[in-house]
């Protein structure tokens, strides 16, 4: 079981995290959409987990594509 990655505590930031709009990131290979707001609890990513807080060695849960091959998208 993966350790759950959660949103960074507010006090760690100069600007409150909640002031930033949530964004979507999409896998270039399979189209899997990661929503920062919803997270992906099945993958151990709690709601509110920012893209930047996901480890660089994370891979797409649907097809194995590396994190670097995701694009920020408007949905």
């Amino acid at each position: 079981m993966r350790p759950e990655i959660g949103p960074r505590p507010l006090q760690d930031e100069l600007t409150p995290v909640s002031a930033e709009p949530y964004r979507f990131w999409q896998c270039r290979t399979c189209g899997y959409l990661y929503s920062e707001e919803a997270g992906d609890p099945m993958e151990g990513l709690a709601p509110g987990t920012r893209w930047r807080d996901i480890p660089d060695d994370w891979i797409c849960p649907m097809c194995g594509t590396p994190k670097a091959e995701f694009d920020m998208v408007e949905v």
Binding site: T29, C30, G31, M62, C63, G64, T65
Partner: peptide
């Protein structure tokens, strides 16, 4: 899975 994962999924 991987690069050949179904396009129409």
């Amino acid at each position: 899975y991987g690069a050949h994962v179904c396009l129409g999924q």
